[in-house]
Amino acid sequence: MDLAPRQRQRLTGYLFVAPVALFLAAVVIVPLGSAVWTSLLRVRGLRSSFVGVANYATVLADETFWHGLARSAAFTASSVLLHVALGLALALLLAELRTARTALRIAFLTPWMVAPAVGATVWLWLLEPQFGVVNYLAQSAGLIGSPKAWLGEPLSAFASVVAVDVWRGVPFVMLLMLAGLQTVPQEQYEAAALDGANAWQRFRYVTWPNLRYLVVVATTLDVINTVRHYDIIGVMTGGGPASATEVLPVLLYNTAFRGNRFGEAAAIGVLLLAIVLALVVVYIRITRIDRDAGDAR
């Protein structure tokens, strides 16, 4: 078979892409298709029957879903805000340091290197009401009078899981910001110094304009990552107490594996996917706008 050079080139390209496409189909498209199909079934153990969009109707009519969505929004907003603020602050601090910078970078990165479930289990014991170290330290410092059940009350449980997620999530943002800081032209700082700018002015008029795009990208990526977060909350509270920390991924897990309602759980999963996809679209738009702006420049 004779092929034109252009066709041959295209075919070769497809052949090179084929293994990756097959791999992606196996690990993304097939499970995704399976999840969508499951969301259209009434599943009871190993038996199932087609029910159309009934699971979606059930989920959307259930206040538990909306509660989970609200919890997800609150968890994501709090965590991402703190990730970005603290990540940026730490990056600025580390960039200024002249000694022990590498050691501190490694130290700050450690929580990110620990498996989330392992970190969550460690925190579970640190926050244990009777024998936990956090209560011991807080009592010793006179911050609390009697041992506190950090994970036993809605507000403190929510704050605790956010705190642990921040402990784990900050290093990633810090790393991105540190990389971003390396790209800020040194001449701009020198010019600002010559103009007599103080530290805040240097940040406001030199660092921030150079990092702004990166902050937006990091925030969007972090939102996408946090909104589908399961492990820390799953291990620490399982969504309790009284559903105070039951974000959508935890609700999904509880519906599937505790409630044995896989169809409804799959519907929650598909709705969660839709939320994440919407965020991905936002991310793509942001990066495209910047690319277009770059081209125009």
Partner: peptide, 8 residues
């Protein structure tokens, strides 16, 4: 008469 932290 109960110990604290019943929800956990």
């Amino acid at each position: 008469i109960a110990a604290p932290a019943p929800t956990t």
